[in-house]
Amino acid sequence: MSRELVKDPLNIIICGVGGQGNILATELLASALVEKGYYATVGETYGASQRGGSVMSHVRISASTEYGVLIPLGQADIIVSFEPTDTLRVARDYANKSTLILTDSRPNYPLGVLIGEASYPSMDAIVAELEKLSGQVQVIEATNLAVEAGNSQAANILLMGALTALPSVPIDVADYNKVLEQRFSGKALELNLKVFKIGYEQIKQ
């Protein structure tokens, strides 16, 4: 097997709102990479609250050396996001014209929107700006698909399925399933394997 990466280091950002399972998804991805012999480092940024704040994880993958846990501005190769406005917030700082973006379309309304001080932008406007900032944008209805599959909380693993299907990501379904099997059992494992496959198929179709 060739260990060489399409780009080294390969920089991936996984972002969303606290409580969406961002940290677990990232940990599973990076564990699968380390199991496969890559250097993987993860930097996690989350605020003081357990839930509700923006959460962003940086994953840096290399075949040859360890990198610092944070990605320099404008140098994300892939952005995977669980929340559209957070996708745009992160893309403005970290995307470049080659960046590939996978984003859920389901809004999670911030306080300012709830109390009517700010409005939530339309998905069309968000995607239009994302397309200007990056190389490619794919919207995946991750939360809705996860709800259909049995649990909205599984949207994180569903998006990891989509990420794994990208040719530049050097792990495959079996690698990710292996770490899922290490950490889950019974119904939770069944659900996670199922949504992972659904996510994978979103890209492969």
Binding site: S49, Q75, K97
Partner: peptide
């Protein structure tokens, strides 16, 4: 040589609501 990035002028950029910290549901 940094990768090519695009900066959207403020008047054309989507207005993003800030994500303030709040108590959980």
């Amino acid at each position: 040589a940094r990768p090519e990035t695009v900066v959207i002028p403020q008047e054309e950029a989507v207005a993003l609501p800030p994500r303030e910290l709040t108590f959980c549901a």
